[in-house]
Amino acid sequence: MTTLQSDNGAGDACAVPPHGERLRRPSRLRSLHLGETKVTYLPDGAVQLSPRGWLPDTHDDTWADHPEYLDDTGNLAAGIGALLVEHGDRALLIDAGFGPQALPAEPGNPHGAIHGGALLDSLTAAGRTPQDIEAVAFTHLHIDHLGWTRHPAPGGGRVFSQADYLVAQPEWAQRHLLHAHGTTADMLKALAPHVRTVTDGQEIFPGLRVQFLPGHTPGHTAYVLTTDGQRLIAFGDALHSPVQIAHPAWSAASDHDPAQAAGFRRRLITELAEPGTVGFGVHFADVVFGQVRQDEDGRPHWHPADTWPGIPT
Rank of each mutant, 00 (worst) to 15 (best):
A153R: 12
G147V: 03
S122Y: 10
G157W: 04
E171H: 12
P170G: 13
A137T: 05
E134S: 12
R128K: 13
R158E: 14
E106S: 12
L83K: 04
D89W: 07
G127R: 02
L120W: 02
A126V: 05
H111Y: 13
G79H: 07
N109D: 14
A125M: 02
A118V: 00
N109P: 00
V167L: 06
D89F: 03
H140P: 00
L93K: 09
E86K: 14
F98T: 04
I143Q: 04
H151R: 10
A135L: 08
G108I: 03
L103T: 12
R128N: 04
G127V: 00
L146W: 00
W148T: 03
V167N: 03
L92T: 03
A168W: 05
G127N: 03
R90M: 07
G74C: 13
D121Y: 00
G112W: 10
R175Q: 14
H87K: 08
T139F: 01
G97M: 04
L92Y: 06
Q162C: 12
P130F: 10
N109G: 00
A113Q: 14
G88S: 10
E134T: 02
T139V: 01
A118S: 14
A163G: 06
A135C: 10
H176D: 15
A173I: 06
L166C: 09
G157C: 03
A105E: 15
A96L: 12
